[in-house]
Amino acid sequence: MSLLGYGMVAWLGFKLANLLINLLGFPVLRESREAPARGVSLLIPARNEAHNLEQTLKGFLAQEVDEILVLDDGSSDATPQVVARAALQDPRLRLISGAPKPEGWMGKTWACQQLAEAARGDLLIFTDADVRWKAGGVRALVGAMTRERADLFSIYPRQITPTLPERVLLPLIDDVLMGYLPYPLLKTPFPSAAAANGQVMAFRREAYWACGGHAGVRGEVLEDVRLAQRLKASGGRLRLALGDDLIGVRMYRTYAEIIEGLGKNLIEFHGKSRVGLALSYALHLLGYTLCWPLALLNPLWLAVGGMGLLERFLLGLKTGRPGWEVVLMPLAPILSTPIYLHAWQRNYVWKGRVYSR
């Protein structure tokens, strides 16, 4: 096998080693019988989320929290009407009309900052409008957060993927986490050893303001990761868990939405480097797809392909995905091609707003 082939084996071996560590040690959220906590605020930024809220509001309202705040960030759909109707049935639910976004802020960071300022709870749980909470989800989160004495506890929800593009591409979100960050490293004091998921982030109020809140990451696309880094830098304690059956999410419904959604922040994961983006694409294409025709020339490339399939299998064991999905791994680089091209562009549109990289 060529030097390139050995390099691919080393890269995939590194990911497999991290996956094995996380298979044993990465926490999974479990139901809790502890008494519900008091002073909990559930905070939901929403911009054109009527289609999601019609399905997810029931889960939000099933949680044992003191208040549920939904901030309407200038929606052009029925988002405020959907929330207002539900609020008539539950006094904990309150609709907030967001102020216009100031220059230099991302839409989500501005919405979350306003929510934090309006919240009254000592525990601030930010969650996206498309996240599906089952009854007991907040109790389980708060219980785990208390046991771990965490200042920020972030959840990676289980991906709900009914269509083929979703099945192929969205598990890669968990693959990045589980394949590159061994959980024990998260417990070190180094701010660079941090990860978080903006879909569910629970802060102790004092820790949130101590690290600057969303104002400290106002212009960041990866505001969740940057917040986690700032929290650790300020002396806070960070912990993560997988949502398992209690917290799930269906992020996108069409292939076009996946391209737009994943493409907006892909380059951020590569240090904003287009060279790094190109190398990443080539690496994944070779390691998961082209390895199979190359095996006709050199059977040792079968080892590369086999390692890629094993990676997907181990990831599925941890995240609850069906085993047969391993056969989809070679499709991932092909379907991700438009995502990389979208990430290459200088300007992009997200939820009706134009941003520049």
Rank of each mutant, 00 (worst) to 15 (best):
G74C: 04
S97A: 15
E103T: 09
P100K: 09
P102Q: 07
P91W: 13
L93P: 04
K101I: 14
E103P: 06
S75W: 05
Q89K: 15
T79W: 02
D90L: 10
Q81V: 05
G98Q: 04
D72A: 01
A99I: 06
D77Y: 00
L88E: 15
A84Q: 15
V82Y: 00
D90H: 11
P91H: 14
P91V: 14
G98D: 00
A78M: 05
S76H: 11
R85C: 03
D72F: 00
D73V: 10
D73M: 14
D90V: 10
L93N: 02
P80G: 04
V83Y: 05
G98T: 04
R85I: 03
A99D: 10
Q89M: 12
P91I: 14
V82Q: 02
L95D: 05
E103K: 12
R85Y: 03
A84H: 13
D73P: 07
D73C: 14
R94N: 07
S75Q: 08
Q89D: 13
P80A: 05
Q89T: 15
R85Q: 13
D73I: 05
D90R: 12
L95E: 07
E103W: 08
R85S: 09
L95S: 08
A87I: 07
D77L: 00
T79N: 04
V83D: 01
G98R: 04
S76R: 12
G74L: 05
T79G: 02
D77I: 01
K101M: 14
K101N: 12
V82H: 00
A78D: 13
A84V: 11
A86F: 03
L93S: 03
P80C: 03
S76W: 08
L93Q: 01
R94M: 08
E103N: 09
Q81H: 04
P80D: 04
L95W: 10
D77G: 00
S76G: 11
G98H: 03
R85W: 05
A84R: 15
G74E: 05
V82G: 01
D90Y: 10
T79I: 04
K101H: 08
A87K: 10
D90C: 10
L88A: 15
G74R: 06
A87T: 07
S75M: 06
I96M: 13
S75P: 10
S97E: 15
E103M: 10
D72S: 02
K101A: 12
I96C: 11
V82M: 01
A78R: 13
A86N: 00
A86E: 03
G74Y: 03
P91T: 15
R85D: 10
Q89P: 08
R85G: 03
A99V: 13
D73L: 14
G98P: 00
D90G: 11
S75H: 09
S76K: 12
A99S: 14
A86K: 06
L88Y: 11
